[in-house]
Amino acid sequence: MTQLAIDPAGKFDNSRANEYARQSRIALAGYDACHDLSACMLAASLGPSRPAKVLVVGAGGTAQEIIAMAALEPSWNFTAVDPSEPMLDAATQHLRANDLLHRTRIHLGHVEDLPADASFDAATLIGVLHHLAGDTAKQQILQSIHARLKPGAPLIVAGNHYAYDSQPLLLQAWSQRWRQQGATAEEVQAKLGKILQGADPPHSEAAVQALLHDAGFGEATRFFSSLFWGAWLTCKLS
């Protein structure tokens, strides 16, 4: 993630990191399916059983994208990047539990901190864009990823889109999702307040496509959707 006037990494403290694995699977219905399909889409794009170096941006928390990709493709290796130390520590614990640390380079920081001549076969950016305020920050992280990918390399982008308050029915359904999982009315209101604070999703699928186009990526193919959430595969043009 990029540095902002309010650094989004600051939101992901120890308390949030400790609850992330459970909370994220409630907030995103289909969390594991999205990560599994992301691995399948990258394998379909690169070709199965081919060695690859994959850049995983915003890997903190569950490291689920790495776990899913590693299970599908034993010859892939990963560079996990996240600016939140508590979240990256949590991811490291999951990687250790799945015996994947030997296949993963851990980097506490931002994409632009990586060597400018780094060359990756693919990348993922899952659950990040909506935490970055304004298009400039979103463009910067996409451009930083673009600069470190080989020509034609695929990129998975996934996250919330739509201005939350522009979709009252989806917000209400999201609230019911928490109630379905046992949250009290007070807890649901607290969750609603949290999602409406400190997040700036792209306001449409067209906005996502425009951000990718401006960063040098081609037309994106959507392969997953869940309320506000979408997931797309695109490729670096040059």
Rank of each mutant, 00 (worst) to 15 (best):
209 Q>I: 01
190 A>E: 13
183 A>M: 08
210 A>L: 14
146 H>L: 02
48 P>D: 06
111 V>G: 06
162 Y>G: 07
138 K>H: 09
169 L>M: 08
14 N>L: 03
16 R>N: 05
119 S>H: 11
38 S>R: 02
133 A>W: 03
189 Q>H: 10
209 Q>C: 07
221 T>M: 05
202 P>R: 05
131 H>P: 04
34 C>R: 12
74 P>G: 08
45 S>M: 08
200 D>C: 10
218 G>I: 12
238 S>W: 05
67 I>G: 01
157 V>N: 10
139 Q>V: 01
126 I>S: 13
203 H>V: 06
13 D>W: 01
93 Q>F: 03
81 V>S: 04
158 A>W: 09
78 F>H: 07
75 S>G: 00
65 E>N: 06
146 H>Y: 14
207 A>H: 14
142 L>D: 09
145 I>D: 08
141 I>G: 04
137 A>E: 05
205 E>I: 00
21 A>M: 04
78 F>D: 00
210 A>W: 10
48 P>K: 12
191 K>G: 00
237 L>A: 06
148 R>A: 06
42 L>A: 07
127 G>F: 08
50 R>E: 03
99 D>I: 11
127 G>T: 02
196 L>Y: 03
91 A>F: 07
117 D>V: 03
2 T>I: 12
123 A>T: 02
42 L>Y: 05
190 A>Y: 01
120 F>Q: 01
50 R>M: 07
83 P>Q: 07
165 D>W: 06
42 L>H: 02
124 T>E: 06
229 W>Q: 07
59 A>S: 15
227 L>Q: 08
18 N>M: 08
184 T>V: 06
124 T>S: 15
212 L>E: 10
111 V>S: 07
216 G>Y: 12
73 E>D: 05
195 I>T: 04
217 F>D: 13
110 H>M: 10
54 V>R: 13
135 D>I: 01
65 E>G: 00
189 Q>P: 00
115 P>G: 06
176 Q>E: 15
210 A>Q: 15
153 A>D: 04
176 Q>H: 15
6 I>M: 02
43 A>F: 00
46 L>R: 13
52 A>Y: 01
174 W>Q: 08
61 G>M: 13
57 V>I: 12
